[in-house]
Design a protein around this nucleic acid. Structure first.
Lengths: 343, 343
DNA sequence: AAAAAAAATACAATCGATTGTATTTTATTT
DNA sequence: AAATAAAATACAATCGATTGTATTTTTTTT
């Protein structure tokens, strides 16, 4: 039941523990024959290196911290899958934590990860996170930091992997315009979050490019939950006032709006065209299927983790801050066009 | 940049590191005034306990290992969310790994987690996992093990949190029968996995109860991916032979079958009724919405983690093996009944 | 075969916190 | 005020692996 140590292996063979340690680390300071004897005995005793001891001595935890708002959200769980995949390949473990969109909890988690001396941190900040002092603390202690999807600008970091939210907002809106929409509402999220500001900026730019005047009351801020979309749509129903398109900063709110429209007997896209953001799995199967922007979570996770591991391997000097901008892909579906007749 | 240690705090105050350690652990062997001085200095120096050192000395990693087939699968990501929530509350970290349904990788992960001396392990085994020798290794080393959803029977463990798959299979099938189905096909998964054997047994039991003869070729084994469902349905289309219902052991295969049926111009549930298993988010929004069995991932994760932490707190003697069986809830939707007219 | 060089192994300190025991300081009792 | 008890603190070993240096053994050179 008890785990064997290098000292026991050494004792069995009449060697010193340092030699055993070196043998197991394949150092060339140990004679091949001795190495073999040591390996054999280690196997016999069912020896397993104690990482707690090894990490302490090496001052390296071989562990990365990952913080996301909510593990169960599809985008984040795929990002985590990508991170885990790259980390595993690189010999790193990942400690995964969820902030549940609360800044307090995010702080507490970071503190805990720092106590655990993680070798690096990957984070997508909570909605509530307004400033980055708790993140700056990491940088100060030399823990490299990589943001993905949601970042806090002006925090020293190794880099960020983002999607080009401006482009996304622009593409979405221009797509609606090209489908003939003239009066387009935009559902946006918490305005202190860069991603929503940028999506909104893209929306405005597209309107401007096509000579459609911007109307302040056409931009509506909310928590972007399904219920928010439903509620906002319902409030507007009476005074639609010629509105013929909605660009929602995420799919959930768009889906909520769609439900409301269906219930009110309106048809999508004929009465009103809809574009979401994120390509949630649901969006593909709903009818009409939802046009949206794909934000490959797996790819973002992989890239973010690559960035972090490269930095760690390079010896930890923050020299350049890299920002990878993924271009979101417009997935055209039925919510913005007449459905293809299904044979 | 460098982290302070208790020795530095001790030096600053002219105390001994052991006193500092005790003060920070709130031991009553340190005078309150001294404790306060120590806490103040610790805060000033930005001291953060080094968990690697602490864990080594205490022989406790304060970390749980979690292994799932695929982090991005909805059910698993919600289960992980539940686990993380409970673990966080109990002061534990979680290391999350994905087996990607491969036994090899599962073995490798377990080895790694054992090197990290995790205090416990939560696992949902891969499809490929045929036997549990790698899991038995944990038990031998005294690492408590809890299975959730997919287990390997006959492996010593603290317990399992399962859904009652037999009941689920039974309910699903009986529901189809009550809707008038007489000839019901069952899509099942890898037969070495208990969950699929049990769902199938429930299917048979329901048939028997209602006097419907069991037909061996009505049970079809596959990987239960969307494509499998699509393919199996397509192969059958020509020779449907009076088949009027399908109970699929997961939602994906059911969704694949549904697509095939739609393409073939058949209507669900009139031509053929469908029941899935797991209540994937997709199933609610597809049209017709899919009747399925809900298997609350969040709840399973929470219960599994509770079970593990209780065991650890109780001092680690495996005395009783607890099996929690959650009763899956039948979610009746349109794929087994005429759609409610939408006002 | 002695001397020098190289290889293999042993020794001991170290990572930072914890903890049983010993010592010193303070408080209490007579 | 001396003796005793109790409280506070210091000392030192420990967790298990790593690693710079010292020592021993083997090999090579002259």
């Amino acid at each position: 039941m008890e785990e064997a140590t290098i000292h026991e292996i050494a004792q069995v063979l009449g060697l010193h523990s340092s030699t055993v340690s070196r043998a197991l680390n394949d150092s060339n300071r140990v004679k091949p024959v001795t190495k073999e004897r040591i390996r054999k005995t280690a196997a016999e005793l069912g020896y397993r290196r104690n990482r707690m001891a090894s990490n302490l001595r090496r001052k390296k935890s071989n562990t990365l911290g990952v913080i996301v708002p909510r593990i169960s959200r599809h985008f984040f769980s795929t990002a985590i899958a990508g991170i885990e995949e790259v980390a595993f390949r690189g010999g790193y473990n990942v400690m995964i934590c969820q902030s549940l969109e609360k800044q307090d909890r995010e702080k507490q988690i970071i503190d805990n990860l720092m106590e655990n001396r993680v070798d690096g941190l990957l984070i997508s900040v909570s909605m509530q996170t307004m400033e980055g002092s708790h993140l700056a603390a990491c940088a100060e202690k030399g823990i490299p930091l990589v943001f993905f999807d949601r970042r806090i600008a002006d925090v020293a970091c190794v880099g960020s992997v983002l999607i080009d939210d401006f482009q996304g907002g622009f593409k979405a809106t221009e797509h609606l315009i090209k489908r003939g929409c003239k009066r387009i509402i935009h559902f946006t999220g918490a305005s202190h979050l860069e991603i929503y500001r940028k999506r909104c900026a893209g929306y405005k730019a597209a309107l401007e490019k096509h000579g459609i005047p911007f109307q302040g009351d056409f931009v509506v801020e909310s928590g972007l939950m399904k219920e928010d979309g439903y509620r906002l749509m319902r409030e507007r129903l009476g005074v639609l006032d010629g509105v013929d398109g909605i660009f929602s900063a995420n799919d959930f709110a768009a889906l909520g709006a769609m439900r409301c429209l269906k219930e009110a007997g309106k048809t999508v896209p004929n009465d009103l065209a809809l574009v979401g953001f994120s390509n949630e799995p649901t969006s593909e199967v709903i009818e009409p299927s939802l046009t949206t922007l794909d934000q490959s979570g797996m790819e973002m996770g992989r890239l973010a983790c690559d960035l972090l591991l490269d930095h760690i391997a390079s010896g930890d000097q923050i020299s350049v801050t890299k920002t990878l901008m993924l271009n979101p892909k417009l997935i055209e579906r039925d919510s913005t066009q007449a459905p293809q007749e299904v044979k």
